[in-house]
Computed example of a mutant assay.
Amino acid sequence: MNELYPIGDVARRTGLSVSAIRYYADAGVIAPSGHTDAGYRLYDVRAIASLELVRTLRDLGAGLDEIRRLLAGGTTLHDLAAAHLELLEARMRDFQARRAVLRTVVRQQTPAEQVNLMHKLVSMSDDDRARLIEEFWTEVTAGLDLADLVGELVRMRPRLPDDPAVEQLEAWIELADTVRDPAFRSAVRGYFRETFRGAERWPEEEAERLAGILTEAMIAARGGEPIDSARARELANRYVTTLATLTGDPDVDRVRRQVLDADPGPHTARGTALLGRYHALVATINGTPRPSGALGSVWLYRAVGAL
């Protein structure tokens, strides 16, 4: 026998109020299973289970029309859940973006006029972020005919994951603000001009070869390659040999001593100060280990010293 329960018992079983159960009945969501002689509503076990499902779906944000279609067989629970999951994840991304902006405002005591800019930066699309970083590197390396090195620099770009943490969003806000700063761009541009001063007078093939060695050194430094490894010795020897060709000095050992005598400390310290924070922020955004701080040129200088 299919036992029927009065609405008060149903309310206690489901955690719904009596008025809510009546509302769902009047809205055509869950109809009573029967009535008493006095006209009071009665519900069987299946109806009670449906009411419990309705309560759960409502708690998850489902609308009555969606629930009505689900119970009538017009949609599936999977499709309903997938649609709400997508909506919820979009809202969570928006909340995380807002949280990142507010945390940055609190931490940096940001002026009111910059808050709107911060929100725009954190809300940029993947394509917009890529364009901003590529435009930065294009400007600061303009005129350098060193395709391999410039290409490697451009590839060192941030890539926010689909579901970034607040820390990653905060790092992006700082990075985007930094690369948009004309003073920072001018300083980085000056550093590269100084680093590759005279490169335009080098034979193209040798210049590209040297740029390729510096690119490999940059990758090795970021990867933590020891300066006394076989790979480091090979790069250091190629570097010294290429410099000997460029300077026209056949004495490779003398060129090596000249490299070591030309202490790159002050110049490299400037480059590390300029680009160290950039690399650290990119590492945070990409979820990768932070770089050691040594630029490729420093690593290569130390590798030459270890020969």
Rank of each mutant, 00 (worst) to 15 (best):
L71T: 03
H267C: 02
E66V: 01
L77N: 00
G223A: 10
Y278I: 01
G265E: 01
F196I: 00
L85N: 02
Y278K: 06
I48G: 07
R107S: 08
A230S: 09
L77H: 07
P264D: 02
A100H: 04
V298Y: 01
V45P: 13
D44R: 06
D177P: 15
P161W: 08
R257K: 10
V18N: 11
Y239R: 08
D26V: 05
A49L: 06
E200A: 05
D261W: 00
P111A: 01
L300S: 09
I219F: 03
D94M: 11
R68T: 09
R91N: 10
A207S: 13
L295W: 12
G15F: 01
Q109I: 06
F184R: 06
R103K: 11
A303Y: 08
T195I: 06
M92W: 11
A220C: 11
A81H: 15
P289C: 04
V304F: 08
E139Y: 14
S19F: 08
L117E: 14
P6S: 09
A269I: 00
A20I: 11
R93K: 12
P264A: 06
R197K: 14
G15D: 01
A232E: 04
A176C: 05
T178A: 10
D181C: 09
L71M: 03
A27P: 10
I21H: 08
T247S: 14
A147L: 03
L169G: 07
R98K: 05
V252S: 00
G305I: 01
E234G: 09
L57K: 01
L77T: 11
Y43G: 02
L274I: 09
R290T: 15
A273T: 13
E139G: 05
A49W: 07
E204T: 13
P32D: 00
A27V: 08
G61Y: 07
R290Q: 11
D145R: 15
T110M: 09
P203C: 14
E206V: 08
P158L: 01
V10C: 12
W202H: 07
G198I: 07
T241V: 12
L16N: 01
